[in-house]
């Protein structure tokens, strides 16, 4: 038996566990694609309407160009939101099936568990959002992949933030049980207005802007607008976002481990479930 402190084989075991679940449930697979598609179609038509209005004699320039960023922002928001959901929902599966005690009594280490949740977040994202990027090309002529290198920066930063949020939410669930389940769905929406997904940071009141700049996704959405409006890849913004993300992720990992220890101290780990 493996005595390694971190075992990729045990991470693989957990990935196999979630893969069995996805493979055995087509409604789950459908659900992964459903909302991203609805979002894309809705915002795609809004973009077409605003863009059309501008071209027909409305305010020129900024508005028309700005409308072009909406569909990209929608898809990147989905990367952030679905990335966190993919992490937190995989964790919730264990709570719903009262399997948490079995897992923490096995040789699985907490950080291996976290790694498997990160892998599943990626898998669920690939299944849910990647097909939607194809639809965006097909129906609205917007190619997210055309962002090239910048897209890699955007993805890395958004995923790191989504995992940090997923870690904190999962830790909170571990400590406080399924009564806090709604957090898994709603927590990310707290960031939606602050991360300036659909508008520039300059729109926010002055006192709120520092809060916005403390959040890595803000840099991504500003970076997206820079690429689409000005054709400039703001690597400075991406590097700053990565630095903040590294701190956030480390803090979130510590928070998860702290919640786990608090759950062991409170004696709730064994009787966790519905």
């Amino acid at each position: 038996m493996s005595r390694l402190a971190f075992s990729p084989a045990r991470v693989g075991a957990m990935v196999a566990r979630y893969s069995y679940l996805l493979r055995g449930s087509w409604p789950r697979l459908l659900d992964l694609m459903y909302w991203p598609t609805v979002q894309l179609v809705t915002w795609g038509f809004i973009q077409r309407f605003v863009g059309g209005a501008a071209a027909a004699g409305g305010p020129q320039g900024k508005l028309a160009v700005g409308a072009g960023t909406l569909i990209g922002a929608v898809m990147l928001w989905d990367v952030l939101f679905r990335g966190q959901l993919g992490f937190s929902l995989s964790f919730l599966e264990e709570m719903h099936s009262r399997n948490v005690g079995n897992l923490f009594m096995s040789p699985l280490r907490p950080l291996e568990f976290v790694a498997s949740l990160m892998v599943m977040s990626l898998v669920r994202l690939a299944l849910g959002v990647v097909p939607v990027t194809g639809l965006a090309v097909l129906f609205f002529g917007f190619n997210l992949w055309g962002l090239g290198l910048a897209l890699g920066f955007f993805f890395a930063n958004l995923l790191l933030t989504s995992w940090s949020v997923g870690l904190v939410v999962s830790g909170f669930l571990l400590r406080h049980g399924l009564g806090a389940e709604e957090l898994a769905w709603s927590f990310m929406f707290l960031l939606l207005p602050l991360c300036c997904v659909y508008y520039p940071v300059a729109v926010l009141p002055g006192w709120l802007q520092p809060v916005s700049w403390a959040l890595p996704p803000t840099y991504v959405f500003e970076g997206l607008r820079a690429v689409l409006n000005d054709g400039v890849v703001r690597t400075d913004l991406m590097v700053e976002a990565l630095a903040i993300n590294a701190c956030l992720f480390a803090a979130a990992t510590l928070a998860f481990l702290w919640f786990l220890r608090a759950s062991r101290a409170a004696g709730t780990l064994l009787q966790m479930g519905e």
């Binding site: 075991a13 196999a16 679940l21 055995g24 099936s97 040789p107 009787q271």
Partner: peptide, 20 residues
Amino acid sequence: YVDMPHRLTVRQNLDVFARL
């Protein structure tokens, strides 16, 4: 006080724990 994932088959459940 604990259970195994309901939607996985018995074989899949045992396979996951055997890997763990």
